[in-house]
């Protein structure tokens, strides 16, 4: 009975949403803010990838907020899952996960450098090809995840993770403030370097630098999240 009520309510919701969106024809060209971005991104900033230009330059302040949200998520997870080590309970034998097989270990060792290089490539070339700081950071975290699940004794040093994250965040803010001082319009995240020419690796001015900082920060944060969760599993016991 309750399910029927819920399904009928959802049908009403879906019908109203469908009515709203069916006015917007699929695949039709529309004029809006996007034409401004598509014109100014290659001409003024010399950035080939328009999505990168929007994320880092036109909406750069928003990205700073988003990175902060991710940092807060990592911190909140650490706070929620924190537990004091009790003296008598060490590792719980029932919960101990078995060592990964030798094939997984060898493959992890083999794949880890390749994944690192792929991640670094993705965020260094973020202004030229699809990809960027978020994607590259996620790929790097995947590489660390591979090591974390294949080797039980592998540990990520939280000290270094925190340092990398803080330095990357600081450099983001510093680049933004430098843009306020040195840029021609004195606004946050303003470009103050030579923009270069389109489709060059050294093009786009500060955008490449900011995206590299975002890549380091996201990679460190996601690795921290995964490490917190996996270590909880290793020492997880029920009381």
């Amino acid at each position: 009975m309750k399910k029927l009520v819920i399904i009928s309510l959802l049908l009403v919701l879906g019908y109203s949403l469908m009515n709203t969106f069916s006015d917007i024809e699929f695949g039709k060209k529309r004029e809006g803010i996007s034409s401004y971005f598509l014109e100014h991104s290659p001409d003024d900033l010399q950035v080939a990838n328009t999505v990168t230009a929007i994320v880092v330059s036109f909406r750069g302040f928003d990205t700073l907020g988003e990175v902060t949200v991710l940092f807060l998520a990592a911190t909140a997870m650490g706070t929620i899952l924190f537990r004091r080590r009790s003296k008598h309970t060490g590792l719980n034998p029932q919960r101990k996960s078995p060592q990964a097989s030798r094939i997984v270990q060898a493959a992890g060792k083999l794949l880890f450098p390749a994944i690192m290089i792929l991640g670094a490539y993705v965020f260094i070339h973020g202004h030229l090809t699809p990809g960027g700081g978020f994607q590259g950071g996620a790929i790097i975290a995947t590489g660390f995840l591979l090591l974390l699940i294949s080797y039980r004794q592998f540990k990520v040093e939280h000290k270094y993770v925190t340092w990398i994250e803080s330095l990357a965040g600081l450099s983001f803010v510093t680049i933004g403030l430098l843009g306020m001082i040195l840029g021609p319009h004195n606004s946050f995240l303003e470009n103050f370097l030579n923009v270069g020419s389109l489709n060059d690796l050294l093009s786009g001015g500060v955008i490449a630098l900011v995206y590299i900082a975002v890549g380091f920060k996201v990679g460190a944060e996601l690795t921290g999240i995964l490490d917190t969760l996996i270590n909880i599993r290793e020492t997880g016991d029920i009381d």
Partner: peptide, 26 residues
């Protein structure tokens, strides 16, 4: 070219969604 603005929005939304999922599961 297709509209780049929703793509930039969704890019951030996916990462935020992962953060929300991780906090909820913890």
């Amino acid at each position: 070219m297709v509209d780049p603005v929703p793509q930039a929005l969704v890019l951030t939304a996916i990462v935020i969604g992962f953060g929300v999922t991780a906090v909820a599961l913890s």
